[in-house]
Simulated scan of single mutants.
Amino acid sequence: MDQFFASVDDTAQSRAAAWLARAQLRPTRQRLSLASLLVGDGQNRHVTAEGLFMAAKASGESVSLATVYNTLRAFCDAGLMNEITVDATRSYFDTCVEDHPHYFWEDTQDLTDAPAGAVAFSRLPDPPAGAEISRVDVVIRLRRT
């Protein structure tokens, strides 16, 4: 379930503006509003575009789902977030861009961080000629017993 910073105050706006400035993204009203929901309290989040859209609407922001998707893609392109694809129909956007694995809880459809360093690879395949590995996403699917 997507959880967001509930109140957007001056501190949240300042954090959002600094987050956007770090990536040299223009602080448009909609970017600032969405960034405040994402990083306003200084905590990392795993969100879906639909969840962020609903949170923006609940906060009174007039924004379309397409704008939320475009903004999340811009945040990813700028290196502020990573997109984690859990299946063909669902992606999550993670505000923590450090390398780390994830747990995907099948019953609740939640994505959470797994302990960093808990997964080790002894070898990755060599990439094809003219390519390099940019990132390895590890999603560990969990089912409650």
Rank of each mutant, 00 (worst) to 15 (best):
D99H: 08
E83A: 09
A129R: 14
V97H: 05
A114G: 09
S122G: 13
F104V: 06
T112Y: 08
A116I: 14
D87F: 01
V119L: 00
A118F: 08
V119D: 02
E106R: 09
E98C: 07
F104S: 02
P115K: 13
P125R: 04
P127L: 03
I133K: 06
D113Q: 13
D94Y: 06
V97W: 05
R123N: 04
F121T: 00
E106Q: 12
E98W: 06
P101T: 06
D99G: 05
E132M: 02
A88R: 14
S122C: 05
A114Q: 08
D113F: 10
D113M: 12
D110W: 09
S122R: 13
D113L: 07
P128Q: 15
R123Y: 02
T89G: 05
Y92T: 01
F93V: 01
F104M: 06
F93I: 00
P101W: 06
T112V: 07
D126C: 06
H100D: 08
A120K: 14
V86L: 00
T112E: 15
A118W: 08
D126A: 15
D107P: 06
V86M: 00
I84R: 11
Y92P: 03
A131G: 05
V97K: 08
A129Y: 12
S91L: 00
S91W: 01
T89W: 04
G117E: 07
D87G: 01
D94M: 12
T85R: 15
A88L: 04
D110H: 07
Y92R: 01
T95C: 04
T112H: 07
E106Y: 02
A120R: 15
G130M: 08
F104E: 09
A114R: 15
W105H: 15
S122K: 13
R90K: 14
P125F: 02
D107H: 15
E83Y: 04
S122P: 01
E83I: 05
R90A: 05
S122Y: 11
A120P: 03
T108N: 02
S91R: 13
D110E: 13
E98R: 13
D113K: 12
Q109W: 07
D94Q: 09
T89E: 10
E132F: 03
E98L: 12
W105R: 11
A88P: 01
T85A: 14
P128Y: 13
E132G: 03
A114V: 11
A129D: 14
H102P: 10
E98S: 12
